[in-house]
Computed example of a mutant assay.
Amino acid sequence: MSDFLALKGKRALVTGGTKGAGLATFKLLRELGATVLTTARSRPETFPDDNFIAADLTTDDGCLSVAEATKQRLGGMDIIVHMLGGSSSPAGGFRALSDDHWYQELNLNLFPAVRLDRHLVPDMITQGQGVVIHVTSIQRELPLPESTTAYAAAKAALSTYSKALSKEVSPKGVRVVRVSPGWIETEASVHLAERLAEQAGTDYDGGKKIIMDALGGIPLGRPAKPAEVANLIAFLASDRAGSITGTEYVIDGGTVPTV
């Protein structure tokens, strides 16, 4: 892969890069030669300190501290991967969602990207090059009303913001693209499948089928691996994708049933 894809000399930031697809992306970008920083609220014990910035990106102060730290450590940025996201809202449909739940989803899934871009993209414009990758979700097109309405709406807002940003900064040398995953087989999703399997009196494969059925089926027959999502992100961040901007790439095993 390194013969085809190389990121040597590139400076990168991956938010939420300590687990799941974020960690896979962090590792792959480093493997391809980039100098990579990542951020989360706390550093895992086994994570290299030199590559980590502790911050709460759901706050403006946290985003500002990360932006300042990246400039101090790397002197600028060539690649930003906005991987941070998730949902903690309760099940129960729209009536179960309070204002606080909506704010939590927006503060986790939309505003960190908006704020970090505001702090970091101007320097990309000054240097005349850079890549910004926003990780959205197929749920912006395929929301699950029982449990993810606010999350899906926040990801839809992120996608629209990303498109607008691409139209503004692409003429200035900064590419902006979106990656839209479906179900990714992370540690958290494995635990979910195991819990559902236990409740239903079945095995892990049965638990995975419960999740796939809830999504309306995955034609490929399985979730994506974190490394597969990382592979797509690395390609889009590389010079191999030099004419790609303003578009969204779905990696969902065929889950979205429409064109």
Rank of each mutant, 00 (worst) to 15 (best):
K10W: 03
N51C: 08
M77F: 02
T15C: 04
I53E: 05
A54Q: 07
K19H: 02
T59N: 07
C63L: 07
R118D: 14
N109W: 08
S87P: 10
A34Y: 04
G20I: 04
D50T: 14
T15H: 04
T15Q: 02
G33N: 02
M77S: 03
G86A: 10
V14I: 12
G76N: 09
F94Y: 04
V81W: 05
N107L: 09
A34I: 12
L64A: 15
V36D: 04
R41I: 15
L23P: 13
R118Q: 15
L28H: 03
P48A: 06
A67N: 08
S87Y: 13
Q72F: 03
E68S: 14
C63V: 02
P112Q: 13
P112A: 11
G62I: 08
D60K: 01
D78S: 11
G16S: 09
W102D: 01
I80R: 02
S87L: 04
Q72G: 04
V14A: 05
G33I: 03
D56R: 01
N107Y: 12
T38N: 04
V36R: 10
T39P: 06
R115G: 05
P48N: 10
D60Q: 00
M83Y: 05
D49R: 10
R11H: 11
L116G: 10
A113K: 14
A54H: 06
G20T: 05
L64Y: 06
T58Q: 09
M77R: 06
W102F: 12
D123S: 15
F111H: 13
G16F: 06
K10R: 15
L106I: 14
Q104S: 15
V81Y: 06
S65P: 06
G33F: 01
T38E: 08
G62L: 12
G93I: 04
N51I: 00
V114I: 15
H119K: 08
V36I: 03
P48R: 10
L110M: 09
S88C: 01
L28P: 07
Q104W: 07
L37A: 00
T15L: 03
F47N: 12
P90F: 00
I53Q: 05
V121T: 10
L64T: 13
A54D: 03
D117M: 09
F52H: 11
F94S: 08
G33C: 00
L116D: 08
R43T: 01
F111G: 07
D56Y: 05
P112W: 11
P122H: 13
G22E: 13
D78P: 03
K27C: 01
T38A: 09
R73P: 06
P48M: 07
D123G: 15
D49C: 05
A91R: 01
A113Q: 14
T39M: 10
N109T: 11
L120M: 12
D78F: 10
K10Q: 15
R115H: 13
D117Y: 08
D61S: 03
D78Q: 09
K27F: 02
A67M: 08
Q72Y: 03
D50F: 01
L64N: 10
D60P: 00
C63W: 02
A96F: 00
L37H: 03
G33S: 00
P112H: 13
T59W: 02
M77Q: 05
A113H: 15
R95T: 01
